[in-house]
Simulated assay, not measured.
Amino acid sequence: MRQHTWNPRPVTVRDTLAVLISFVAMLVAMILVALAQRGYTMITDRPAPTWLGIALGVTAMGTQAGVLAALLRRRGWRWADLGFARLSCRGWHLLWQIPTVMIVSLILILLVAALLPDLTPADTAPTDAAARASGQAWMLTALLLYLIVGPVIEEVVFRRLLMGWPDRTVGVVLSTLTTSVLFGLIHLVPPVMIWTGLIGLGCALLVRWHRSLWAGLALHMVNNLMASAGLIAALLT
Rank of each mutant, 00 (worst) to 15 (best):
T127C: 10
W79A: 15
V11I: 06
V156Y: 00
M102H: 02
R86C: 10
A85M: 09
A55G: 04
I107T: 12
R208T: 12
A125C: 09
C89N: 14
A80L: 11
V67D: 04
G150W: 01
I107Y: 01
P166W: 01
L35V: 05
I31A: 11
I21K: 00
L17Y: 12
L235K: 00
V181T: 07
G76W: 00
L20E: 07
I232Q: 05
I199A: 08
R73K: 14
D81N: 08
P10E: 05
A204Y: 08
G171K: 02
Q97M: 14
P190W: 03
P47N: 07
T100E: 11
L236A: 06
E154R: 00
I103P: 01
Q37R: 09
M163S: 12
P99Q: 14
V149Y: 02
A29K: 00
L144K: 02
E154L: 06
V58D: 03
L27Q: 11
A55C: 07
T44D: 01
A215H: 04
P99W: 12
M1D: 15
R211N: 06
L143G: 07
T124Y: 04
R73F: 13
G57V: 08
T50W: 00
G66S: 15
A233N: 07
A129Y: 12
P99R: 03
R74P: 05
R208A: 10
R74A: 05
M1R: 15
P117E: 06
E155V: 12
L145K: 00
T169V: 11
P166M: 05
L52C: 07
A55T: 06
Q136C: 06
L217I: 11
L182T: 13
L20H: 10
M226K: 01
V13P: 04
G230Y: 00
A85E: 10
Q97S: 12
R75G: 14
A34S: 09
A234F: 02
I199C: 14
S212P: 09
A234N: 02
P190D: 08
R208N: 05
D128G: 13
A234S: 12
A34R: 08
S212E: 12
W51N: 03
V181R: 02
L147T: 05
W77S: 06
S180N: 07
L106F: 15
L115G: 11
V11P: 04
S105V: 07
A55P: 06
S175T: 14
A25S: 15
W79E: 07
G57K: 02
W165Q: 05
T59R: 00
L206Q: 11
A131C: 10
T196M: 09
A234Q: 05
T169L: 04
W209Y: 03
V152S: 01
A142C: 07
D167M: 09
L217S: 03
T141D: 13
T41W: 00
G197V: 11
N7E: 14
D123L: 13
M26P: 01
S228V: 15
L219P: 05
A204L: 08
S180T: 13
V58C: 02
I103W: 03
Q64G: 05
P121G: 15
L20M: 14
R159F: 01
V157M: 03
Y40D: 05
V207I: 11
L201Q: 10
G202S: 13
E155W: 06
V156S: 00
